[in-house]
């Protein structure tokens, strides 16, 4: 069943069109990779799906589980199960990670009409997940991402993904700034979350990440459109021949 349907999406930022009619369908349980050069619109797509202000959708639509995502505020999208793992997770001094996680989780549950998670249950869950991601407990007592290394910030994103249990995870350049070990830990965390009901959209420049998170479908983006889709072998092909051929095609 289609989880995410992006149809002929046109998006402008400050009078300049970035996406020129992008179409993409992601079904439950699938892992999609979106690859493309800088400026092809990959991050714009992820921001528009998450609801970041500053983007003007001039045409097309985005459906999530059949509902019009563009009509929803970012927090409603989160509560419905959309999760964007940020390329550059922000630092929030003065808000401990633990407080942030609990506040966010309960806000999502409240929006869905569910009861708040009891503190012991919450703590147990956080401990389990953070242990599997190799996140030390004392990190959770510090300000959100404050003083975290690049790898720790990305693992913190995966921790949130595990806690919030979204049905669609968009990983925006998860590999940027990570060394190979940090990448492996984060990727293992993501793979552990993959399930028949949960889809992943992995946005990346490089094929390297896809050695760890193996996609069902690979899309190539260029100049604001998907110009080619294929199986995981498409990523390898790109690694060898580069993006130039597609820039001409676009």
């Amino acid at each position: 069943m289609a989880l995410l349907e992006v149809k002929d999406l046109k998006v402008r930022v400050e009078e300049r069109e970035i996406l020129h009619g992008l179409t993409l369908t992601v079904n439950e349980g699938e892992i999609h990779a979106i690859m493309g050069p800088n400026g092809s619109g990959k991050s714009t797509l992820s921001h528009v799906i998450a609801g970041k202000p500053g983007y003007e959708v001039t045409d097309g639509q985005i459906l999530f589980k059949g509902e019009d995502l563009l009509e929803m505020a970012p927090e409603e999208r989160a509560a419905k199960g959309v999760f964007l793992a940020f390329q550059y997770p922000v630092e929030i001094p003065g808000v401990t990670t633990m407080n942030f996680l609990r506040t966010a989780l309960n806000a999502q549950r409240k929006a869905r009409g569910e009861s708040e998670l009891m503190v012991p249950d919450f703590l147990k869950k956080v401990r389990e997940v953070s242990k599997s991601l190799n996140i030390p407990q004392d990190m959770l007592k510090r300000g959100v991402n404050v003083g975290f290394s690049g790898g720790e910030k990305k693992r913190n994103e995966v921790l949130q993904m595990a806690l919030f249990e979204p049905s669609l995870c968009i990983l925006d350049e998860m590999d940027s700034g990570l060394d190979i070990d940090a990448l492996r830990i984060a990727a293992d965390g993501v793979n552990a979350l993959h399930s028949p009901k949960r889809a992943m959209v992995v946005i990346t420049h490089y094929q390297r990440l896809l050695n760890y998170i193996v996609p069902d479908v690979v899309h190539v983006m260029s100049k604001g459109r998907v110009v080619k889709s294929g199986g995981k072998e498409l990523a390898l092909e790109l690694e060898e021949s580069g993006y130039t051929q597609f820039e001409d095609a676009a």
Binding site: E75, A78, V90, N99, F100, A104
Partner: peptide
């Protein structure tokens, strides 16, 4: 935006940042 993308409504996101401030 980060807080809203994690499910916090505007007012609650603001409140959290004000408390941190």
């Amino acid at each position: 935006f980060y807080l809203k993308a994690r499910g916090l409504p505007e007012k609650q996101a603001q409140a959290l940042l004000i408390q941190a401030f």
